[in-house]
Design a protein around this nucleic acid. Sequence first.
DNA 1: CCTTGACACCTAGCTTTCCGATGCATAGGG
DNA 2: CCCTATGCATCGGAAAGCTAGGTGTCAAGG
Lengths: 112, 112
Amino acid sequence: MKGQALKGHLDLLLLAVVSDGPKHGYAVIEELKVRSGDAFDLPEGTVYPALHRLERSGYLSSEWTVSSGRRRRNYHLTKKGQKAAGEQRRSWDEFTHAMTGVLRGAQWAPTT
Amino acid sequence: MKGQALKGHLDLLLLAVVSDGPKHGYAVIEELKVRSGDAFDLPEGTVYPALHRLERSGYLSSEWTVSSGRRRRNYHLTKKGQKAAGEQRRSWDEFTHAMTGVLRGAQWAPTT
DNA sequence: CCTTGACACCTAGCTTTCCGATGCATAGGG
DNA sequence: CCCTATGCATCGGAAAGCTAGGTGTCAAGG
């Protein structure tokens, strides 16, 4: 997938992945790659700042852990994060619905 | 619909609407509102610069027209624009597919 | 006549987001 | 010992969208 197509929807992706169980940043990246069928291969410079952002917003919470000498910051969803995830999910559905409405009827669109 | 969810997908929307037949900016805004069921109510400051961008890129072409004293810039899709529209449409499909893959399986997501 | 609102266009500047580049550190295999 | 994979972080640039402001026409109402 070509660059920055996920503009504005990254937060939802991250919340979705973490909602499956606590994960550290690197693992989040891998999980996104797997679940999207290699479509989302996000650079660290995208994901780490986003996780920080979500924590600052109170949607995620984290603690340091150490596993065989490697330090990891483990993120888990907060109550507030769960609520936000649900809202953003609904938002996403509305968005795709609206897009479909606009896209339907254009010549190049395979008819309904 | 909360702001800026259409980051990166605005071009596709505009190309789709214009591909239905030449339109001027104001009409494009109205058409988007109608087709999206009021979900997309885009400010002029969003649409006009985007149309200019698309014209600079060679996807749209325009001429001034005057109708009862009112001047309008009428946009129509170019060959190049048609091609781009098709590509972006495919891109959108891939994107939603990938999103669905990630979203599926999260707790708050209604099962399959 | 004058104001209001719909129509119709435009731009400057702000903010946010994503990403490329770069840096640090550890573990394990060759 | 070096290279790769793992794992984290930040800085700066480039876009995109929006706010806020501006111009001008026309029709309707007070």
